[in-house]
Design a protein around this nucleic acid. Structure first.
Lengths: 146, 146
DNA sequence: TTCAATCAACAGGATTCCTGTTGGTTCGCA
DNA sequence: TGCGAACCAACAGGAATCCTGTTGATTGAA
């Protein structure tokens, strides 16, 4: 992070620091996931589906502050790799539900531990209480802008 | 953030929460910057140059955990818009220094206040102390992964 | 001087994101 | 009942962001 070191100027903004942390996380995730042939964004989408299997692309888009079209690009990539499949919602024929496949669940299981270790490394210099406060601050920041 | 509400499942990971906050920040920034015709990423690059005018693309790349080639794409866009110019480093003829133009400084000045308001809105539900701790946690997280 | 490291640039391609449009589905309301 | 508003997926097309691999120039150190 340029500007971290001693300087007479103002500290970097919180907005900038969040971006920098997200950036370094993504670079580690991409490295971790390279053997699996998927990007950090694709992996993140899979973890969302792990929590909420059977979301529609429109729901996923609203959650992600991007357009449905952008989500469709990611979902198509995941579908081509056989990690998700799509199925018409029987209760609402407009919607196509996105569902994890066995292969998708396998991929998530294979990477759960390395990703957990990455997160532990990120907060290794925080106490348990500080980590809780960090989580709380992120949650409040997200709510304030949503 | 899907999964924020009551659920029997585990809470979303910190890695995920960071991404979500960065995402919602970027969407607000993009909205803010749309009239200026630049993206959130391009604006962020400009603010880095505001702090450290005359960086080389290679330095910028190392700071951003992306390749020099990716940085070059952003810099080219900024150069085409007349917001930065490039100039051979007289002390090291390999390097091309990236410098803000008057137009670039104007753009930064025009948007400083709205961006500051966005950041204030983000932390409106945090006390001053909590905001400081938030900043500290982000800094420690960044260092732990760099 | 020679060799490794560094830097910018080019080619080429994948991914992520957008706007705008079309057509099908659902739902409320006249 | 039917009709319009809202919603959903998909297509076309394009911009922005990222990558690998390569080339050539410059630098600095052995």
């Amino acid at each position: 992070m340029v500007g971290t070191k001693a300087s007479t100027k103002a500290p970097p903004s919180l907005l900038y620091m969040i971006k920098q942390v997200e950036l370094v996380v993504r670079s580690h995730l991409d490295e971790l996931l390279k053997p699996a042939g998927i990007t950090a964004l694709q992996y993140t989408s899979l973890t969302v589906l792990e929590r909420h299997d059977g979301l529609s692309a429109a729901q996923l888009a609203r959650d992600s502050f991007v357009t449905a079209q952008s989500v469709a690009d990611v979902v198509r990539a995941l579908e081509n790799r056989g990690l998700v499949r799509r199925e018409r919602n029987p209760r609402n024929r407009r919607e196509l539900l996105i569902l994890l496949t066995e292969s998708g669940r396998d991929l998530l299981a294979r990477h759960a531990e390395p990703v957990r270790e990455l997160e532990e490394r990120m907060i290794r210099d925080l106490t348990a209480h500080q980590a809780d406060q960090f989580r709380l601050a992120l949650s409040k920041a997200w709510h304030a802008l949503s």
